[in-house]
Simulated scan of single mutants.
Amino acid sequence: MSLVKNDANHDRFASVFNLLPSEAEFVMPVLEQLMLKHLPKGAHILDIGCSNGYIVQQLQKRGYQATGLDVSGKLLSFARINSPESKFIHEDIRNFKSPPTYDAVYSKNALCFFMSLEELTTVFQNIYTAMHDNALFMFSIPTADIYWRDGVPEDDYIGYGYTNTHCYVGDTFVFIERENYHYKPEERIREVAMTIFELIDGIWKRTDSRHLVKDYFLSEIKAVLENVGFIEINDCNIQDFGEDYKGYDQHCIICRKPSLSQ
C-alpha cells in the first residue's frame, strides 16, 4: 500500500484536536529523563508532527528554542497561538530539507504513517541532515514487537471490525478514534478511523477520516537508523516509567548523530 493513499493530514479535525486533553504532562517527564537532561538551556529542538504545539510550548517555557513541524496547516494555526514565541514549519517531513540546525529532534507517534522502509529511510536521512553533530534524536512509535504476536494482532481481532476505541466528549464536540485490524498480518498495517461530531452554529456536524499505520519491527527501525548513520541507538518501553504509564505499551527510541569532524 502506498502512502499516497494514506490521509494522515488532520486539517479537518484541527479545531477539535485543539480541545482534546493535552499530552504534554504525559510526555514531558519522559523527555526530561531521556533527552532534556543532556541538553543545555537554549538548545534548539525540533518537534516533528507537533500538532497543536503543546509540547513545543512546554519546551519553550523550559528555556529551550523550540520549532514545530507538521503537515497540517490548520493544526499549525493553533500551534502558533498556543506557543507564539516558537517557530513553526508547514511541511511534510519526507520533503523537509534543512542545513544542520537542531541540537535535538523529537517526534511522538508521527513516524508510523510511512508505509515502507524506503520512505522511513528518507525521513531519517532528512532528520540526520538537519541535526548538528552530537545532536540527539528521540521518538516514540508503535512497533510490531508489541502490537503483533506470532503474526497476528495481540488482541486477536483481525478481520473482526474495530478495537481499541477511544472517545472524548466535550460541550461542543464528540471525538471517536477506532483502530481496525482488517489488513493482512504479513503487511503489519492497521487502519485508524476517526469520527467527530462538532456543534457549529447550533447544528451538530459529522466528519469522518481514515488513515493507515505501519507497525515496523524494532530491529527494522534500528537497522534503518544505523544505515543512515545514527549511533548509540537505544530503546525502552514507555510503560516502564512508572504507575502513571502502565498500559502505554509502546517503544521509545533515542540515538545520536556522531561528530563528523572526529
Score class of each variant (00 low, 15 high):
Leu19Thr: 08
Phe78Gln: 11
Ile221Val: 13
Gln125Ser: 11
Pro29Thr: 05
Phe114Tyr: 12
Asn109Ser: 13
Asn109His: 10
Met138Asn: 11
Gln125Trp: 00
Gln262Met: 14
Cys50Trp: 00
Val56Asn: 01
Gln262Tyr: 12
Leu117Asn: 12
Ser51Val: 01
Trp148Ser: 09
Gly229Asn: 06
Ser86Pro: 08
Trp204Gln: 11
Gly170His: 07
Pro258Gln: 10
Met1Asn: 15
Ser259Thr: 14
Asp171Tyr: 05
Leu36Val: 07
Leu75Val: 00
Val174Phe: 02
Gly49Cys: 04
Leu117Cys: 14
Val105Thr: 08
Gln250Ile: 06
Gly170Ala: 06
Ile158Thr: 08
Val169Asp: 14
Ile221His: 02
Gly229Leu: 02
Trp204Lys: 14
Cys112Gln: 06
Gly63Lys: 02
Tyr157Met: 11
Asp7Tyr: 08
Pro100Leu: 04
Ala144Gln: 02
Gly63Ala: 11
Gln58Thr: 04
Ile200Phe: 10
His90Pro: 03
Gly202Asn: 14
Thr207Ala: 08
Asn82Lys: 15
Ser116Asp: 06
Cys236Glu: 05
Thr195Phe: 00
Ala135Glu: 05
Ile141Trp: 01
Val71Trp: 06
Gly229His: 02
Tyr106Ala: 10
Glu243Asp: 13
Asp235Met: 03
Met138Ile: 14
Gly63Asn: 07
Glu177Cys: 07
Gly53Ala: 05
Lys214Tyr: 02
Tyr248Ser: 14
Met138Ser: 09
Tyr183Ser: 13
Val213Trp: 06
Leu199Val: 07
Ser77Ile: 06
Leu76Gly: 01
Asp156Val: 05
Gly242Glu: 07
Lys214Ala: 02
His132Trp: 15
Arg210Gln: 04
Val213Lys: 12
Ile200Asp: 08
Leu69Ile: 07
Leu39Asn: 07
Ala144Tyr: 00
Glu186Met: 14
Glu243Tyr: 09
Ala223Arg: 11
Gly53Met: 15
Val123Ser: 01
Asp155Cys: 13
Arg62Thr: 00
Pro40Glu: 07
Gly242Tyr: 11
Gly53Tyr: 06
Glu154Ile: 12
Gly247Tyr: 03
Phe175Val: 08
Glu232Ala: 11
Thr163Glu: 10
Tyr168Leu: 04
Phe17Gly: 00
Tyr248Phe: 13
Met1Leu: 06
Arg188Thr: 10
Leu136Val: 14
Asp235Phe: 12
Ala24Tyr: 01
Phe114Ser: 13
Asn52Phe: 11
Arg190Asp: 09
Asp150Ala: 09
Phe13Ala: 11
Ile233Leu: 08
Lys37Leu: 12
Val105Glu: 06
Asp156Trp: 04
Asp150Met: 12
Ala130Gln: 13
Lys74Asp: 08
Pro100Asn: 08
Phe113Pro: 01
